[in-house]
Design a protein around this nucleic acid. Structure first.
Lengths: 210, 210
DNA sequence: AGTCTTCTGTAACCCTTGTTACTGTATAAG
DNA sequence: CTTATACAGTAACAAGGGTTACAGAAGACT
């Protein structure tokens, strides 16, 4: 674990902190598609992403959902983080977008380190800032863009996070992520294909315009 | 200034910190409707809200805008805060919703206090958390609610923040805040009036259902 | 090979929201 | 008082996106 930890966080955290993380953190694997945290659950550990990618979803009482953003190596979940500090329930749902390795830190440690390590404090602040920026971006997307633009952005983001211009996803799954219906997605995808921006196959989509 | 400072923040900050804020902070007044910060401006001071209310707006390149949330006494702007720490330009626009009194803190101090005062650190974290929660709420609103529901929520929020069930606002202003057109707002307002939820006058709206 | 299930394509229709245009009315300015 | 201006009401139409329904295609299973 130490080696991977250094690769992902070595350039921000001093050796002493890396050692501490290594000794108290628990390494965990999540296979692609597995839930990491559910809305309403109490958060008892804070995750540091070592490898893979996680998608963060919002959900309302009727079960409608919406993709907020993706997390990658070197990221942590500011939502979880804020839940830890506030001792409140999770406001979001996290699902492994790829096979994922993460390290779980007990809350007490994360609070202790805030006073002890400047690099940790900076990291926590930077995470908050990054997440606020992502949220603003999400708001821009749903407030100012039409569904066809949102769809294209979604495909590009997803290709980037999975490091593959061929995306393995069904129309129904996209519809869930964008909070719309399958028929709408199929319709718009067909239009994008006619425009030469993507190629459609069963269970996958290839992006041409990257 | 000291007295007001104590009233608004005395129960969170220790006396020593209050004294420091009092000595380095600059008291400023903003009349209702005045801009406090513009998108793209560099943020050199961090504001603490002493009295009044501020509305935080997002704006895209075409000049389309959208209300994000309101700030009240005891709040600070986490966006500004994150800009301070990151030395970046403002992502948002802030406008005085009522006549407002605020104290401006130089960035250096705010960083210094983070290591010096635990209460300040906690305050900064709590602000981030509060703003993340507000952003989630905003996303819920625009993603999951129809315009009539958003409008009603807007009126209620605005009545609350102005502590008055009669809201002084034109249909056009509401349309800007909700990022829609005046005609749509007029139409929906009329429907709300027929349902007995509000009463319409020129330049003002009275909420019945509080 | 034959059957079942999942995924995709498409048509037809409806509702919500956005657009254009025109009217009347309250208020401000001259 | 008269005129100009900002605000509000309403109709008619357009467009985007959601809904229902059905059919064909690709795999999965026996």
């Amino acid at each position: 674990m130490l080696q991977e930890l250094k690769e992902a966080y070595g350039f921000i955290f001093e050796d002493e902190l890396i050692e501490e993380i290594n000794s108290v953190g628990k390494l965990q694997f999540k296979a692609q598609g597995k839930k990491i945290i559910e809305i309403g659950e109490y958060v008892k550990m804070m995750p540091l992403l070592i490898e893979g990618a996680i998608k963060i979803m919002r959900e309302d009482k009727d079960g409608d959902e919406l993709l907020l953003y993706f997390l990658e190596r070197g990221d942590t979940c500011a939502m979880t983080l804020s839940c830890c500090l506030g001792q409140t329930k999770s406001e979001i749902r996290a699902v492994a977008e790829r096979d994922t390795k993460l390290i779980l830190i007990p809350i007490e440690k994360m609070e202790e380190w805030i006073s002890k390590y400047k690099s940790w404090r900076d990291f926590v602040f930077a995470s908050y800032q990054a997440r606020l920026t992502e949220m603003l971006d999400t708001i821009d997307t749903i407030a100012f863009m039409n569904m066809d633009q949102r769809l294209m952005k979604y495909l590009e983001d997803k290709a980037k996070i999975n490091q593959n211009e061929i995306i393995a996803v069904t129309h129904q799954q996209i519809a869930y992520d964008l909070h719309t219906s399958r028929v709408v997605i199929s319709r718009l995808l067909k239009k994008l294909e006619l425009d030469g921006k993507i190629k459609l196959q069963r269970n996958s989509i290839e992006i041409m315009a990257l």
